[in-house]
């Protein structure tokens, strides 16, 4: 059973760590790009950007 638990812990924690790394990378990069170039954003219209 220890192998099963080890497999699950490694699998889920690696997926979680990768997901958090992507979110952090996205957050850092999106600060460098103008909001109107981030088409997925739904809050664009509400945000004052000066453009």
């Amino acid at each position: 059973m220890s192998y099963v638990i080890a497999g699950w812990v490694i699998g889920l924690s690696a997926l979680g760590a990768y997901a958090f790394a992507l979110l952090a990378r996205g957050r850092r990069l999106s600060r460098l790009v103008a909001p109107d170039r981030q088409r997925w954003s739904t809050t664009r219209a509400d945000t004052p950007t000066g453009r």
Binding site: L22, L23, G26, R27, L29, S30, R31, L32, A34, P35, Q38, W40, S41, T43, R44, D46, T47, P48, T49, G50, R51
Partner: peptide, 11 residues
């Protein structure tokens, strides 16, 4: 622009 756009800082 970034200072006034706190909601737009993620993917």
């Amino acid at each position: 622009a970034t200072a006034s756009a706190p909601l737009l800082t993620s993917t």
